[in-house]
Amino acid sequence: MNSLRLFAHPISKVVSSRTMASHPLSDLLGRLNHVAIATPDLEKASTFYKNLGAKVSEAVPQPEHGVYTVFVELPNSKIELLHPYGDKSPIQAFLNKNKDGGMHHICIEVKCIKKAMETVKSKKIRTLTEKPKIGAHGKDVVFLHPKDCGGVLIELEQE
């Protein structure tokens, strides 16, 4: 019975009644677009998701980003598989430290990339570039420094 009383504690009422709309970034962050996974074997990773019944795209070279991308479509989001392209691929550097691959970044949509950049900078969150670049979906993107984001590389993408 005492364990049930925990849920009736006054602090839980305060926490549960707080809405996301009160958060300072509520007007900035949209839906999760994708989770990106670096892989040393793109074909093996693609086959893994195909065998689970997912719709998996063909590999697309993204020379300006130094990667090949494959998108795995899920009902509520996507997984982006990343594989090195070229000698200066940031994914190769990641794989040098993580031989089996792993989560590389998450991508969150924003309504206005320029406003998003201004907002994060005002909160002392560094961007990895001064201007947005065109991402794999043909939309403006910017990456946020993982040291300012709890150790996670975050990509913001224009809706």
Score class of each variant (00 low, 15 high):
residue 94 F to S: 09
residue 70 V to E: 01
residue 92 Q to F: 01
residue 104 H to W: 10
residue 96 N to Y: 11
residue 130 E to S: 13
residue 146 P to Q: 07
residue 57 S to V: 12
residue 38 A to I: 03
residue 11 I to L: 14
residue 39 T to P: 06
residue 17 S to I: 14
residue 10 P to C: 08
residue 25 L to C: 09
residue 63 P to M: 10
residue 143 F to L: 10
residue 46 S to T: 02
residue 67 V to R: 02
residue 127 T to S: 07
residue 16 S to K: 13
residue 35 V to T: 08
residue 5 R to M: 07
residue 136 A to P: 12
residue 69 T to G: 01
residue 97 K to C: 13
residue 105 H to L: 04
residue 2 N to D: 13
residue 118 E to W: 07
residue 138 G to R: 05
residue 145 H to M: 15
residue 145 H to T: 11
residue 29 L to V: 06
residue 115 K to Y: 07
residue 14 V to I: 14
residue 158 Q to G: 02
residue 27 D to I: 04
residue 109 E to K: 11
residue 80 E to G: 01
residue 115 K to L: 06
residue 83 H to W: 09
residue 117 M to Y: 04
residue 23 H to R: 15
residue 22 S to P: 10
residue 38 A to D: 04
residue 126 R to F: 10
residue 24 P to C: 08
residue 150 G to W: 01
residue 8 A to P: 00
residue 104 H to F: 11
residue 103 M to N: 03
residue 83 H to R: 12
residue 101 G to Y: 03
residue 36 A to Q: 01
residue 138 G to A: 05
residue 59 A to C: 14
residue 81 L to E: 03
residue 145 H to K: 13
residue 94 F to D: 01
residue 33 N to C: 11
residue 13 K to C: 09
residue 84 P to K: 05
residue 58 E to C: 10
residue 57 S to R: 03
residue 61 P to F: 05
residue 76 N to M: 13
residue 8 A to W: 14
residue 15 V to T: 15
residue 144 L to N: 00
residue 36 A to W: 01
residue 13 K to F: 12
residue 100 D to S: 14
residue 50 K to N: 12
residue 118 E to K: 14
residue 2 N to M: 15
residue 35 V to D: 02
residue 148 D to I: 04
residue 150 G to D: 06
residue 129 T to A: 15
residue 134 I to L: 11
residue 134 I to D: 09
residue 157 E to L: 07
residue 138 G to P: 04
residue 147 K to H: 15
residue 85 Y to L: 15
residue 96 N to G: 15
residue 69 T to I: 07
residue 32 L to M: 12
residue 26 S to H: 15
residue 81 L to C: 08
residue 100 D to N: 12
residue 129 T to Y: 09
residue 86 G to Y: 00
residue 37 I to G: 04
residue 87 D to E: 11
residue 127 T to K: 03
residue 43 E to N: 12
residue 28 L to D: 00
residue 34 H to D: 10
residue 34 H to S: 04
residue 67 V to S: 07
residue 159 E to C: 10
residue 123 K to Q: 13
